[in-house]
Nucleic acid binder design. Sequence first.
DNA 1: ATATATACGAGTTTTTTTATCGCATTTAAA
DNA 2: TTTAAATGCGATAAAAAAACTCGTATATAT
Lengths: 131, 131
Amino acid sequence: MFKLSKKVEYALISISHIKSSNTDKPISVRQISDKYNIPNELLAKILQTLSKVQILDSIKGPKGGYRLKSSLKDLSFVEFIEILEGPFGIADCMVDTDCSQLLNCNIINPMDKINSKIYKVFSDIKLKQLT
Amino acid sequence: MFKLSKKVEYALISISHIKSSNTDKPISVRQISDKYNIPNELLAKILQTLSKVQILDSIKGPKGGYRLKSSLKDLSFVEFIEILEGPFGIADCMVDTDCSQLLNCNIINPMDKINSKIYKVFSDIKLKQLT
DNA sequence: ATATATACGAGTTTTTTTATCGCATTTAAA
DNA sequence: TTTAAATGCGATAAAAAAACTCGTATATAT
Ligand code: SF4
Ligand code: SF4
């Protein structure tokens, strides 16, 4: 409960790794998955996602891999999470999902306040700070 | 990802309900599970837990049910969560669980900072505010 | 006595998360 | 121009966590 997903962690690890590698040569999925002990195919998908949303540049073919997108604007952590996991919310009624308690719910107001607080924490954190 | 569990929500709904009922008569599991559309047996377990940790008083037999424990001190939300869900942490390495990335993890420091921030939000919120 | 309630451990089902597979496409290098 | 190394992508499977059920015991008001 209340855990960051591995997807998010793997993505952060990768971005951080690519950033700190200080090279123009693309970094392959294999290099990262080997070093950090991440399932290769899974990581591949995640980096594909990051490439689709303009966080990474992908280079195909041998010696290919990923580079940080130079034009990358600084995303907030919550935006980053939503790219990988969909809409953010600490309870079902705060995202799309419906909830059997919604009709009579007597805690939705406080829940909503908590949600805002957590959302704010994650908005104030920027991707660049994390990597 | 990053959702409060139903367990926590059901517990909050129940405490809130009992509190706002403004009566000395014990409230049965059935009353709550009916009103809020919560599986009865599941809610029973949750209230048993709350009774064991001195949040609720249980009264057995016909006309029995639960009352708020009069001596209840104001718990923080994080303490409340930990009663129901065990140790709090936004990543495996921050609780007991081990993590395949721990050895080379390049994001553990920022993760730890985020964890502290979220922990603080949940410490600053008191159960009484929520119900 | 009986019916209504909590107590509690064990077990099941469902949902979510994590991981794998198979095949296609691209492209650098031999 | 052939080959091998890499990404792209949809489908599927396995594992873990969350949600829920069941069976049996115990207490108590009527
Ligand atoms: S806050 Fe209430 S309505 Fe929203 S998800 Fe939780 S129980 Fe359902
Ligand atoms: S922060 Fe690093 S070590 Fe901790 S759980 Fe995440 S990946 Fe594992």
